[in-house]
Nucleic acid binder design. Sequence first.
DNA 1: TATTTGACGATTT
DNA 2: CAAATCGCCAAAT
Length: 102
Amino acid sequence: MSFFKSVYEAVKLIPKGRVATYGDIARYVGSPRAARVVGYALHVNPEPNAIPCHRVVNREGRLAPSFAFGGMEVQKALLEAENVEVSDDGYVDLAKYGFKFA
DNA sequence: TATTTGACGATTT
DNA sequence: CAAATCGCCAAAT
């Protein structure tokens, strides 16, 4: 079980209508400081079909400022499609939609 | 085998 | 209050 594999599993565990932060995922897989590795793992995204990266946000509750997998418009559409309120900048309310891993 | 990089996070200036 | 820097971890080259 590679670190990346665990990350993918964790992302798949995010329920619809919820978003998780890189830090939470890193913590879930066992390396609380490996948030960057989580981001890198999603960057590779070997299974875009099963890995809803739009559902993964940074600690601010927003997608990566340096990169948008296809445009924040797409992200906004995907998240809103799951009943998640998204600000015009792509911000989500972590207090309401922030998913907490077991 | 070693070095560099990278969807982050927290702290300091 | 906002921007820049340092620190961590694992993978890729």
